[in-house]
């Protein structure tokens, strides 16, 4: 069935079966492959995207459920060539190695800026625990998130 999604501010019309997840629709049909598939069962956070500004998991949403909703993927984060401060901070603090969990980490971290997460590193660690990083780049991730939070970015 045809469904029109608003992805990164643009309408994208896809012809999908109801069983197609947002994750597979993005990766296999829209060819927006920044959003990663790590577990396909809501257990790793690699597919984190924003729906109406809130972080969610694209692997557990059917594409057809999202008509009229605003979807943001990592591709929609940077303003042209200018990186979002969170993206720049991840590079600066080496908040990744292989980079595969990174889109989900960054989308989670950006959403976190608008959540009632406490100020401490421990609070950030808890709030970011839904994003597994098997390379173990957690210290760099926390440093990046804290740098952006302390700079007051949104």
């Amino acid at each position: 069935m045809p469904v029109t999604l608003r992805i990164n501010g643009r309408p994208v019309t896809l012809d999908v079966e109801p069983r197609v997840t947002l994750l597979d629709a993005l990766r296999e049909q829209a060819l927006l492959t920044a959003t990663k598939k790590g577990c396909d069962h809501g257990q790793c956070g690699a597919c984190t995207i924003h729906v109406d500004g809130r972080r969610q998991l694209a692997c557990l949403i059917l594409a057809v459920m999202l008509a009229e909703r605003e979807i943001t993927t990592l591709e929609g984060l940077a303003a042209g060539d200018e990186l979002h401060p969170m993206q720049a901070a991840f590079i600066e603090h080496d908040g990744f190695q292989c980079g595969y969990c990174t889109p989900g980490q960054i989308m989670s971290a950006v959403a976190l800026l608008n959540e009632p997460c406490g100020d401490s590193d421990d609070d950030v660690k808890e709030c970011m625990s839904g994003n597994l990083c098997r390379c173990g780049a957690y210290p760099g991730i926390v440093a990046a998130v804290q740098q952006v939070r302390r700079a007051g970015a949104r």
Binding site: G42, G45, T48, R54, R55, Q56, L57, L60, I61, S108, A111, L112, E115, C127, M128, S129, G130, N131
Partner: peptide, 9 residues
């Protein structure tokens, strides 16, 4: 319970 993403859903 769960994670920030899952709790939003």
């Amino acid at each position: 319970g769960a994670s920030g993403q899952l709790r939003n859903m």
